[in-house]
C-alpha cells in the first residue's frame, strides 16, 4: 500500500465517527494495538520528551525503507504515535521528508500537533523526518 493509500484509509476509518468521543475511543484502540517498541529500544536516547507526556521512537533502515517503532506513556498519545507509524513506517526517506501530514488535519487531529500541546507528538514528527534525512544522507 502506498503512503497516499494509507493516508486515505486512515481518514476513512475516522470518518465513520460523528462524535468526537467516539474518535477518541478509536485513537485509544489504535494505541492499545500499537506493536510495542522492543523494550531494548526503550532507552533514553530514543526518548522524545514533551512537557506532559513521553514518546519513544526507534528507526531502522531496511531495503531502502525506514521502519519505525514507537511507544508513549499516555494512551492517547500512543494512539497518535500509532497513526503516524502506520502512515510513515516502511516508506522511502523522501516520502517521509516531503509528507505534509495533510491526513492528520483531515482526521481533525491537528490540535495535537500544536507546539503548545507539549505532548511530544510534534517533536516526534520532526524526529521521524530527521531519521529519514539521516538514512538518506548515509546511503546516498
Amino acid at each position: 500500500m502506498s503512503l497516499s493509500e494509507k493516508e486515505i484509509e486512515l481518514v476513512d476509518e475516522f470518518a465513520i465517527y460523528d462524535d468526537w468521543m467516539d474518535k477518541y475511543e478509536y485513537i485509544i484502540e489504535l494505541g492499545k494495538d500499537l506493536p510495542l517498541i522492543d523494550e531494548a529500544h526503550k532507552i533514553d536516547e530514543n526518548i522524545i520528551k514533551g512537557c506532559q507526556s513521553t514518546v519513544w521512537l526507534h528507526a531502522v533502515y531496511k531495503d531502502g525503507k525506514v521502519v519505525f517503532t514507537g511507544d508513549a506513556d499516555a494512551i492517547i498519545v500512543k494512539g497518535l504515535v500509532a497513526i503516524l507509524v502506520r502512515a510513515l513506517s516502511e516508506e522511502e526517506p523522501d516520502a517521509i521528508i516531503n509528507n505534509e501530514l495533510e491526513f492528520v488535519k483531515e482526521i481533525g487531529l491537528q490540535e495535537h500537533l500544536s507546539p503548545t500541546r507539549s505532548n511530544g507528538v510534534l517533536a516526534m514528527i520532526k524526529q521521524m523526518k530527521m531519521y529519514a534525512l539521516g538514512f538518506k544522507m548515509k546511503n546516498a
Binding site: 507526556s53 492517547i76 498519545v77
Partner: peptide, 9 residues
C-alpha cells in the same frame, strides 16, 4: 491512568 489522557477526554 496518565493525567494527559484523562485531561484530554
Amino acid at each position: 491512568l496518565h493525567p494527559y489522557d484523562v485531561g484530554t477526554l
